[in-house]
Design a protein around this nucleic acid. Structure first.
Lengths: 209, 209, 209, 209
DNA sequence: TATGAATGAGCTTTCATTCAT
DNA sequence: AATGAATGAAAGCTCATTCAT
């Protein structure tokens, strides 16, 4: 929406700058391990000074959270779109889309680990994170339902979410971009997970591919 | 075995001191996030100076690896014992034992992540790690077989391993000991994972508990 | 030149601060043996924190090199000026000026030794060092030529350079400022060296092998 | 001489052990830069514990001095033998022998620099060092005399000694053994130095200022 | 608001030296 | 006399954060 006052304009600009920082950080996190991304590097990559970042975020954790939340929104959009398509094979597609995203955004689950495990979020931050998680789990739950499962769907969604994250922590190799080989392995595992979370009406040994 | 010479005795004592350091480190890792455990803290907790640690380990990575490998041996023992019992429900038991262990040893999968992803192990260290991993996967594979699955068992073992690790990264809360609540949640998820990895001969909606 | 913009001013100030650190370091090196000069001591002497030094130099070696190069430029200026004067006795004056400088800058040849021998300079640093050395040797060579020698002048310049450095390693006393006595001794030796490098009458070019 | 009492025997053994340590250290110093030789490495190379070294030397400096003095005695022997031969070209041979020795014993002049410059020797140590130096200078002086020089011979010996040492600090490259190239360069410079210290025909005693 | 120099606590690591056995 | 584990001071270096401009 167009700014109506100078005040609005200023506010919009400020917001844009903040977004720019977060976006740059996100790119860095996508390509580097979490612990290799420093304030200095983010500042440099954004083309601002380190001090500037502190004008927008009160500490590095806050910036990390914003990056993480944006990653969350992105993956939610992606998974959401995947579910809009043909319902047959939806679960498998969802799993592959999710794991593929993790491959492209290497620090995502490291940050996840950090935020979920750290337990030091403020009262304002926590709900945002929770909201994100809930939406993602909604989508996983829907995928599970589409695949024919009707019981324990919420818990299954949690389990699915965990399982897919685990693929990355267990098999992704650093540093740099994932090799084609490791990406393929993670996708194959995602497929296995998907199959196991599908309802298999009368699964007979040898029938699953 | 009892020492036969002074030399033996000294060597045993030395080994014992080394173990003490590793054990202390393991305790710290169990209670703290990986990156918060420093040489200084390990030294202090062990009651020695930082320099002493370098008399036993040539660098911090070597100590970390020893701790990690010991954790690995432990979990292999535990899972192995679990498989010796009644074959019915073995997979489920294995999953719970594994997740329970991760709950008690919080840094284990962070270290796993580090060592798997870092790719900076020496030529001597890597095989030890690989050997550990292979044994653990053997056990998971056996559990899967016992549960009735006969196809893709190796890949399924990988997927299972990933999935269980993922539970922790996704749901374990830091810092300190896991709350009873979070432990229960992770165990419930382990259960779900186990069910999904079981062969369900003619699984009918509503039939899975 | 006067700064034209704020940017210029800031840049100049930064440069000045950097110079201040280097200058302080140079003073420390003048009075102390090379290996006793640490980042912390330089920082303290400059009145800044150790971290600050790393804002200006990426590591200690870089600072050392800057100090060393500046020393080199200084000695080149001094020797150059000496050569501008009366050609009679120029070689002797050059030798005394050089040795006197080494007396006032005790670590200079220790650093020389370090940089020459270490062989760990980057591709950017090495040429600077080489350029410095070449200019100094050019001056020594000129002095030798002025003194009447016409053969092997480059090699003789190397030998002269070595010989004068050797005076310091062999006779300068640590710690602290050189005593008047030791300074006099080194100057006397410089004189001897100079005499021996002068052409003495009937020596005919080509006769020395 | 054969031990006459148990006491003698014990004392001889003790002396032998001490020598062994010093000899091993000397080998290490010959092959490594001074600052890379640690007590631990000497102990390990000797096959004793670090503590043992402190039973023979009250600190590392004392050991260094012993090594240095032994090196001195060696070089004195070598130079002395060189002087026993044909008097023609003796100075040149002496210079080459000395520089060659420095090439084979890389740390020698680093230690020289240390001891001469440190000025922290005890009242017992200093005379030993001085005695060594005096003998070496005696030999250099004799070589200069043989070469025809008759004035200022003591001072010239000092200058020659300095000059030859300077070759090494100025041109020897670390690490490891000297390359054939660098050795040749240092020998060529030694030759130049020698030539310049020789009396050249028509030079008349008293004429050089 | 943006800057970026300065900070300082904290890191891993080295090594001469001590001392109980 | 020999041991070698333990020490602890000191090194170089990193980095989130602060604050005067």
């Amino acid at each position: 929406m167009a700014p109506k006052t100078f005040e609005d304009l200023r506010s919009q600009e400020r917001e844009a700058r903040k977004k720019l920082i977060a976006e740059t950080a996100r790119n860095l996190f996508a390509r580097n391990a979490f612990r290799e991304v420093t304030i200095r590097k983010i500042a440099q990559a954004t083309g601002v000074s380190a001090g500037t970042i502190y004008n927008h975020y009160s500490n590095i954790e806050e910036l990390f959270l914003e990056v993480f939340l944006e990653n969350g929104r992105q993956i939610i959009r992606l998974v959401g779109k995947t579910l809009e398509g043909d319902s047959s094979g939806a679960l498998s597609r969802v799993c592959r889309v999710y794991v593929n995203y993790l491959n492209e955004n290497r620090s995502f689950f490291q940050m996840m680990s950090r935020f979920i495990q750290a337990g030091e979020l403020t009262a304002e931050e926590l709900p945002k994170l929770d909201q994100n998680m809930r939406e993602l789990l909604d989508l996983f739950e829907e995928a599970i339902r589409i695949a024919g499962n009707r019981t324990n769907t919420r818990l299954s969604a949690h389990a699915l979410f965990s399982a897919l994250n685990g693929i990355m922590i267990s098999y992704a190799k650093y540093p740099g971009r994932p090799t084609e080989e490791s990406r393929e392995h993670t996708l194959r595992l995602a497929e296995i997970i998907a199959e196991n979370f599908e309802l298999r009406e009368s699964r007979v040994p040898g029938q699953n591919k």
